Amino acid sequence: MMTDVGGVLDRMRGVDAGLPHGDGVAVFNRVYVAVTEEVRRRLAAGDFADRVAAAELAVRFAGRYLAAVADDAAGRRAPACWRPLLRLRAHPGIRPLQFALAGINAHVGHDLALAVLDTCRATGRELPELEADFDRVGEALTVIEVEVRELLMPGPDVLEAADPLTHLVGSWSLARARDAAWAAARLLWALRRSDDAFEECVSRLDAGVGLVGRLLLTPVGGRQSSGSRTGAISS
């Protein structure tokens, strides 16, 4: 297992190096590199209440995404939340912003709650002890998500109010996904000693997040070469 945020960044950059620039996973991966660099900056600045637990959370959170990518590359079945992005990553009718948001949806909607519990087990913390730093990680995600929307949304010359992309991406909210992730973590924490109920909830969470991801990846037309600014996010 990776032991620090630097190792996480190395793994992500390795993923990026092995993928075509326009691949849907590559689009999300570049976003996630930016998020992780922001978390590392905040860790170095002492912005977290519990630096050890926050670093553990960042590593375990990233590990779930990297495991899904590795499973897919090896022909193993990835979690349901990641399968829409992994299967539709080369679809010509899906815009880069959709790939980015579908990846954020899978990672925040499913992986974040489980990473919180992983961190509690690894560090001996109780769930309430992680809430403040959970919020700080969420703040870093929000900063990058705003940038992502600005960079990957086609410019006003090609994007009109009637463009289905406008309505599709406007229907998903990172703030709501973060709130749902914390609620899921609380539920799973309460069920952590009830194996059957715990596993059923994890399975239902995975399936539900996967359904949202599939909707986010509804093809809305060819990628715009003139207005898209996909190159602005880089690792």
Rank of each mutant, 00 (worst) to 15 (best):
V5I: 15
G6T: 04
G7S: 08
G7I: 01
G7N: 07
M12V: 02
G14K: 11
D16H: 07
A17E: 03
A17M: 08
L19A: 07
P20W: 09
P20T: 08
H21A: 15
G22I: 10
G24K: 02
V27L: 12
R30Y: 01
V31D: 06
V35A: 00
T36W: 13
E37F: 06
R40A: 07
A44H: 10
A49C: 02
R51A: 15
V52S: 15
V52P: 10
A53G: 01
A53F: 06
V59S: 00
V59L: 00
R60G: 03
R60L: 12
F61H: 07
A62H: 04
A62F: 01
A62G: 10
G63L: 11
R64L: 03
A67V: 05
A73G: 07
A74F: 00
A74N: 07
G75H: 01
R77P: 02
R77Q: 12
A78K: 05
A80I: 11
C81L: 03
W82T: 03
R83Y: 09
P84H: 11
L85C: 03
L86T: 00
R89M: 08
H91N: 15
A100I: 05
A100Q: 04
L101I: 14
L101G: 01
G103D: 04
H107T: 11
D111T: 00
L112D: 05
L114S: 07
L114H: 02
A115I: 13
A115C: 08
L117K: 03
D118P: 03
T123A: 08
T123S: 05
T123G: 01
G124D: 11
R125W: 07
R125D: 04
E126K: 12
L127Q: 01
P128M: 09
E131W: 08
A132T: 14
F134L: 04
V137H: 11
V143S: 10
V143E: 14
E145W: 11
P154Q: 15
P154L: 14
P154K: 06
P156A: 15
P156Q: 13
D157A: 13
D157C: 12
V158K: 07
A161Y: 06
L168S: 11
G170M: 14
S171D: 13
S171G: 15
W172G: 00
S173Q: 14
L174G: 12
R178C: 03
R178Y: 03
W182I: 02
A183N: 05
A184F: 02
A184N: 13
A184R: 08
A184G: 03
A185C: 08
A190M: 09
A190K: 12
C201A: 12
C201K: 10
S203T: 14
R204I: 09
V209M: 11
G210I: 00
R214I: 05
R214L: 09
L217F: 03
L217H: 01
T218Q: 13
T218R: 13
P219L: 13
P219Y: 13
G221V: 13
G222I: 09
R229W: 08
R229L: 06
R229T: 06
G231D: 12
A232E: 09
S234L: 09
S235A: 10
